[in-house]
Amino acid sequence: MRSTQFLGRRITAAASTVIFATALLGGATAPALAHGQVATPVSSHAQDQAPAETLQPDPTSPTAYEFGETLAGLEGEQLEITFLAEIIPHHQAAIEMSQLELERGASPDIRTHAENIIANQQHQIDQFTRWLEEWYGLTPEEAMAQAPEEAQEEMKVLEEETQMMIEELSAVEAGEGFDVAFVQKMIPHHQAGIIEFLEPQSRADHAQLRVAATAGITTQQAQVADFRTWLAGRS
C-alpha cells in the first residue's frame, strides 16, 4: 500500500504534468479559487443572457498523467521499452476509433482527420514494432511484460478505459452525432498520447525514437486544435 507521502509526491508531480501538457496543447484551465474564497453567484439576468453551453471533449484520463510520471522516473532501455509497450496499443485504439468514424461519420473534415490518423498511427505502429525487435528482440507483448510493475498496472487501467471508450462510441448512431462523439473522445485520447510522448521526445537513447516522438506530438497537437475548433462550431 502506498504511503501518504508517496501519494502526495505523485499528486504534485501529476499536477505539474497537467500544466505542462495543457500548455503544449494550447488549452486553458479555469483558475482555481483560493482557499476560503467564495465564488460570486451569477445573477439570473446574466444567466438569461448567457450563450448556449459549448460542447466539451471528454476528460483526459488521470491515469495517463500517472503513466507520464512513471515514464519520467525511467531511464535508457527501460524507458524506451515501457513507452513502446504502451504507445503501440494506444495507437491501435485510435485506428479502431477512426475506422468507426469512416463507417458512421458524416463530416468530410472529420472523416479526413480519421483517414490521417489511420495512416500516421499505423506508420508509427510499424516503426515502433520493428524497433522493439531490432533494438531489444521483443514483441510488444513481451515489452509490456518487462515494464515495471507500476507501469503495467497503469497500462492495464488505460487499456480498460480505452476499451470502454470504444464501446461507448460503437453504441452511437451514424450521422453528425457520431462525428461529435468521435471528436469528444479523440481529443482526450490524443492528449494522453502527447503526455506519453514527452519523456521519449527528450530522453530516449535512440535518436530515431526522439524524432518519432516529436512528430507524434506535433501531429496530434495540430489535430486536437482542429477538433476543438470544429467542436466549438457545433454549439
Score class of each variant (00 low, 15 high):
1 M>Y: 09
1 M>A: 15
2 R>T: 12
2 R>I: 13
3 S>E: 12
6 F>G: 04
7 L>V: 12
9 R>Y: 01
10 R>H: 04
10 R>M: 10
10 R>P: 00
13 A>H: 03
20 F>T: 00
20 F>E: 00
23 A>F: 05
23 A>E: 15
26 G>S: 10
26 G>M: 12
27 G>W: 10
29 T>C: 10
29 T>G: 13
30 A>Q: 09
33 L>K: 09
33 L>M: 13
34 A>W: 01
36 G>N: 06
36 G>Q: 07
38 V>K: 14
39 A>N: 06
39 A>D: 10
45 H>L: 11
48 D>K: 08
49 Q>F: 08
50 A>H: 07
51 P>H: 08
52 A>H: 12
52 A>T: 11
53 E>I: 13
54 T>W: 08
55 L>K: 09
58 D>I: 03
63 T>A: 11
63 T>I: 15
64 A>R: 00
65 Y>E: 01
73 G>Q: 01
74 L>K: 00
74 L>A: 00
77 E>F: 04
79 L>T: 00
84 L>T: 04
85 A>R: 04
89 P>W: 04
90 H>I: 05
91 H>A: 10
95 I>K: 08
95 I>A: 09
96 E>H: 09
96 E>W: 05
99 Q>Y: 07
100 L>F: 13
100 L>D: 09
101 E>M: 15
104 R>Q: 13
106 A>Q: 12
107 S>C: 08
110 I>G: 03
113 H>V: 14
115 E>T: 12
121 Q>A: 07
121 Q>N: 10
122 Q>N: 11
130 R>G: 13
133 E>Y: 08
134 E>R: 13
135 W>Q: 13
136 Y>N: 05
137 G>I: 03
140 P>I: 07
142 E>T: 10
143 A>G: 03
145 A>K: 06
145 A>Y: 02
146 Q>C: 02
147 A>S: 05
148 P>L: 01
150 E>Q: 02
151 A>L: 01
154 E>Y: 01
155 M>L: 04
156 K>C: 03
156 K>L: 11
158 L>V: 02
158 L>M: 14
158 L>H: 02
160 E>T: 11
163 Q>D: 15
164 M>L: 14
168 E>N: 13
172 V>R: 02
172 V>H: 03
172 V>Y: 02
177 G>H: 02
179 D>P: 00
180 V>F: 02
184 Q>F: 03
188 P>H: 11
189 H>A: 14
190 H>A: 15
191 Q>E: 15
191 Q>L: 13
192 A>S: 15
192 A>F: 07
193 G>Y: 06
196 E>V: 03
197 F>T: 00
198 L>M: 13
198 L>H: 00
200 P>G: 07
201 Q>T: 05
202 S>C: 03
202 S>L: 11
202 S>N: 11
202 S>Y: 06
203 R>E: 02
204 A>T: 01
206 H>N: 13
206 H>K: 15
208 Q>R: 14
209 L>P: 08
210 R>G: 11
214 T>G: 15
214 T>A: 12
214 T>S: 14
216 G>M: 06
222 A>D: 04
225 A>N: 04
227 F>G: 01
233 G>F: 05
233 G>Y: 08
